[in-house]
């Protein structure tokens, strides 16, 4: 099939970007979206033109590298789908597809469709861990974890750190990402000791890094490729409030 592409091109972080138009005449419906971009790049290089920079690695919706804003949606069409799982059969012959990078103040564009998501690493360093050195761990069965809590913690832990929630949010808030981590660790007995400190520090860091605040629009939940729900945001709010009160005491 024939596809027209409208792709954001930006030489580097400082440069001004703009949309470039490309056309592909020979797109196979079985191709993945990323393979379609590969074939575009092969063509551009052969023609002596600049290829389009974009990120991808696992192609299995688990590493969180891929991060394309396709036709106005982070990760493009499809529910609970990462960019690397989008296939060309989701489009029709003759379609025009607009591809942009994540847009958020805390995720500056590095080149074309690549952004800097280092702010997520900084959020994690602010408290997304349990303080335990290798060698100190008690027996894994010493703390019993009920199946329901373990499964719920897993649901939160399934976050791949892609940043689609930030890209989807009109406030560019990272609340869903932080909520997922805070909830995962607060649901487990081994994570409870530091739960208050974690919630306070991660939320403070989020503000410091320039992420916006959460106004409960729910856009993040809709676009999250892993189906992380905003009920975790409610859990974060509880943890945070609780921690703030005990802090004030």
């Amino acid at each position: 099939m024939k596809i027209k592409l409208n792709i954001w091109k930006q030489a580097n972080a400082k440069a001004k970007g703009k949309f470039e138009k490309y056309e592909l005449d020979d797109v196979d419906a079985e191709m993945s979206f990323l393979e379609m971009l590969d074939s575009l790049n092969e063509k551009l290089i052969k023609e002596g033109k600049e290829p389009v920079a974009f990120e991808h690695d696992c192609h299995e919706a688990i590493c969180g590298c891929c991060s394309l804003y396709i036709n106005g949606h982070p990760h493009g069409p499809g529910k609970e789908t990462a960019t690397c799982q989008v296939h060309m059969r989701s489009f029709k012959d003759g379609d025009t597809i607009t591809v942009e990078p994540w847009r958020a103040k805390s995720f500056p564009v590095l080149k074309d469709l690549m952004v800097d998501r280092n702010a997520f690493d900084k959020l994690m360093a602010a408290g997304g861990f349990i303080s335990i050195d290798a060698g100190q761990a008690p027996d894994a069965n010493a703390n019993l974890v009920g199946k329901i809590d373990a499964d719920k913690a897993f649901d939160a832990a399934a976050c791949i750190g892609c940043g689609a929630c930030v890209a989807a949010c009109k406030n560019s808030s990272a609340t869903l990402f932080v909520a997922a981590k805070v909830s995962q660790l607060a649901l487990l007995p081994q994570g409870k000791v530091e739960a208050k400190r974690r919630a306070l520090n991660m939320v403070a860091k989020m503000d410091e890094l320039g992420f916006g605040s959460c106004t409960n629009t729910g856009a993040c939940e809709v676009e999250c490729p892993k189906g992380i729900g905003i009920d975790f945001i409610a859990k974060l709010n509880r943890e945070y409030l609780c921690a703030s009160f005990s802090e004030a005491e």
């Binding site: 861990f129 349990i130 335990i132 290798a134 060698g135 100190q136 761990a137 008690p138 027996d139 894994a140 069965n141 703390n143 019993l144 974890v145 009920g146 199946k147 373990a150 499964d151 913690a153 897993f154 832990a157 995962q184 660790l185 487990l188 081994q190 994570g191």
Partner: peptide
């Protein structure tokens, strides 16, 4: 065996039985 203890202590939500054991 130590690895499972360590990872669990770090917050890895390994699958559990209803009784809470691994």
């Amino acid at each position: 065996s130590d690895i499972i203890d360590q990872l669990t202590a770090q917050g890895v939500p390994f699958a559990r039985e209803y009784g809470g054991t691994l």
